[in-house]
Design a protein around this nucleic acid. Structure first.
Lengths: 186, 186
DNA sequence: ACCTGAACACCGTTCAAGT
DNA sequence: ACCTGAACACCGTTCAAGT
């Protein structure tokens, strides 16, 4: 039963989740799959391509069933979903941010955000810039959360002080951004 | 004439500027200084510490002579200065962002931004969160500029279309952020 | 105090050769 | 088609020993 490209990606995600990006090496991955390092290069061009494919997996299904409503609730929902997707895997923000930086295309996430913001009334250029700005915020905030990570895995339901929880802290910055955009639209 | 810690940092910055972060290895640095790799560890604890010291150099003198005036002009000036400092060295944003992620303290940049925003009327927690948000934006935007980098080193004086130049694009996102904060203050 | 020599335990990637 | 074996050209870090 030969190895599948899918097996390789799944194995890589498993190592990422359990040991983190620093321990995700081609040799270690090969070992966990019971195969020689060189074998991986039959399924994947190189490590960079592997990380790109992992990033795609992490972001998969991000845009399913977006609520129809005001632009601000839609963009807020998108941002929260992106953060959740990144938080779902150890070092997820770092992996996806690194993969994104290399491709100017940037996948559909930016396109979707741009679309929502253009609908809101921004012109094409501003909408795309605003989408990138938001993306940077989500990546930066989430990477921060994950680097200070470990504990506080699942936030307790009755959170303590005002902006203690990660979600609340994230929401604050997000609302500043949305407020700023609103000011530009009136 | 023995090597100095200062020589090591200067040599490291030279390699960074000329070849980029990917080529800044301890062995290469040692070679450029005419010394064995092990010698570096007399002057610097490890590579992480070296990168931290480089980050400090890049950010050095960031807060000198901040204009006295409204909070929004001050925070805008600070953000522009931070971006300029990062742009002054190849891969500067990536280096400083990586170094920042590891130290919760975060140096004085955040502290200064927090101070300005607290003066503006935000409470302590919100001011610090807002400062971090702004920091993420600056890092994200600048890292993006530098990864798509190379060409467009010095923007021509008479820039073309609306948001073509890096500075203008940066300014747009920055003003969204500042507008959002203003909305929170009235 | 400062550095060399030499090692240890790794990397990513390539590629003939096997099945 | 898919993988092994073995190599190539690297890494960061440690540490006795030299000066």
């Amino acid at each position: 039963m030969a190895l599948t490209r899918d097996d390789v990606l799944t194995g890589a995600l498993a190592i990422l989740d359990e040991y983190g990006l620093g321990d995700l090496t081609m040799r270690r991955l090969a070992g966990s799959l019971g195969v020689q390092p060189g074998a991986l290069y039959w399924h994947v061009a190189n490590k960079q391509a592997l990380l790109g494919a992992i990033a795609d997996r992490i972001l998969d299904g991000l845009d399913g069933g977006l609520p129809v409503g005001d632009w601000d609730t839609r963009i807020t929902e998108l941002a929260h979903r992106l953060r959740a997707a990144l938080l779902a895997h150890r070092d997820g923000a770092e992996v996806v941010a690194a993969a994104y930086a290399l491709q100017t295309g940037r996948g559909q996430t930016v396109r979707l955000m741009t679309e929502v913001l253009a609908d809101a009334g921004l012109d094409e250029t501003e909408a795309e810039l605003a989408a990138l700005t938001l993306l940077h915020y989500v990546f930066g905030h989430t990477a921060d959360e994950q680097s200070h990570a470990q504990a506080a895995e699942h936030e307790p339901a009755g959170a303590p002080g005002a902006l203690a929880s990660g979600t609340a802290r994230f929401g604050f910055g997000l609302s500043v951004f949305v407020d700023g955009l609103r000011a530009r639209l009136v």
